[in-house]
Amino acid sequence: MDVEKHSIDQRAYQTSRASGLLAGALTAFIAFCTFQIFGFTIGETATWMFALGLMAASGTFATVYFVGRSALRRPMPAT
C-alpha cells in the first residue's frame, strides 16, 4: 500500500510541476508583452514578469497538486 501511495503522490507531483511551469511561463510572456506595449522600462518589466510568473506558477502548482492528489486517491467505482 505504501508503494501505491508513493506512486500516486509522485504522479500528482509530476502533473502539478508541469502545470505550474506552463502557467508561470505563459504569465511571464503575457506580462512581458503587456508591459512593453505600454512603454514600461525593461527593469520594471523584468520585475513584474518575475513576480507575476512566480505567483502564477506557485498557485497553479499548489492547486493542481492538492486537487489532483485527492482525485487520484479516490477509489474508482466498480463497473
Rank of each mutant, 00 (worst) to 15 (best):
M55C: 11
I37Q: 12
G20N: 05
G43L: 11
K5T: 05
G53L: 02
T63H: 12
I8P: 00
G24L: 13
R17A: 15
L26K: 08
R73K: 15
V67T: 11
R73Q: 14
T27I: 13
L26V: 14
I8C: 01
H6K: 08
T47H: 12
T34H: 03
T41W: 04
Q10F: 11
A28S: 15
R69C: 07
F29P: 05
Y13I: 02
T60N: 13
F61E: 01
F35A: 06
L52W: 06
G24Q: 10
R74I: 05
L22E: 13
A62K: 01
S19R: 14
A51E: 06
A57W: 05
K5F: 02
G20P: 02
T34D: 10
F35P: 00
F66N: 15
I8L: 15
E44S: 14
I42T: 13
A51L: 15
A18G: 01
S7I: 06
R11C: 00
T63G: 04
V3A: 13
R73V: 07
G39N: 09
W48N: 05
F40P: 00
D9C: 04
A31V: 14
F32I: 09
A57D: 08
K5W: 01
A25K: 06
V67M: 07
T34R: 05
A18K: 15
A31L: 07
L26F: 11
A57N: 11
A28Q: 08
T79R: 11
L22S: 09
R73S: 09
Q36I: 01
S70T: 12
I30N: 03
S19P: 00
Q10N: 08
T45H: 02
A57L: 15
C33K: 10
I37G: 02
V67P: 00
M1V: 06
Q14Y: 05
K5H: 07
M1H: 11
R17V: 08
T27P: 02
A57H: 06
P75D: 09
T41L: 03
A56P: 00
F35W: 08
Y65A: 04
A25Q: 02
A46Q: 07
F50H: 05
A71S: 07
A18V: 09
F66S: 14
F35E: 01
T15N: 03
V64K: 00
D2R: 05
L21S: 09
L26S: 11
L52G: 00
D9S: 12
L72E: 15
F32W: 11
A23D: 12
L54I: 09
Y65C: 06
C33D: 04
A18I: 13
M1N: 10
Q14C: 10
S70I: 03
R69D: 15
A28R: 10
L54E: 07
